[in-house]
């Protein structure tokens, strides 16, 4: 079978180093500015230190997950923030556990 040559899809890495403005974060997560500002106040997502309204691109994942938790499970902002914090802790604990269970 002939292998077709696929074009290389070069994506953008959404990590801690890439910075986004509030508007860019809104667009990436398909949220209205007002709504995201409310989530900011509830701690669903934290701006980078320095007092500005800049965000690490890794926040995109947090906001997207919060949106799904809201839409699918009916959580409000405070509930979604709590769930996300707990999920992050569980992920970290699972990684540690994997180290000790070999």
């Amino acid at each position: 079978m002939a292998r077709e040559l696929l074009p290389l899809a070069k994506g953008q890495l959404l990590d801690e180093e890439l910075e986004l403005s509030l508007g860019e974060l809104c667009r990436a997560c398909h949220m209205e500015l007002e709504e995201l500002e409310e989530w900011l106040a509830e701690g669903v997502v934290e701006p980078l230190p320095g007092g500005g309204r800049r965000f690490a691109a890794i926040s995109v994942r947090r906001v997207q997950r919060a949106r799904r938790l809201r839409d699918d499970l009916g959580l409000n902002a405070a509930g979604a923030a709590l769930v996300l914090d707990l999920l992050e802790e569980i992920e970290w604990l699972r990684q540690r556990l994997a180290r000790f269970e070999g």
Binding site: L6, P7, L8, A9, K10, G11, Q12, L13, L14, D15, A28, I58, V60, R61, E91, Q95
Partner: peptide, 22 residues
């Protein structure tokens, strides 16, 4: 469908790669 994706150096578990228009 099959995509050929560039995995950037330094990527970590939980991070996302955004492929615009895909």
């Amino acid at each position: 469908r099959t995509l050929n994706v560039q995995i950037p150096k330094g990527i970590r578990q939980g991070q996302q790669i955004r492929l615009a228009g895909q």
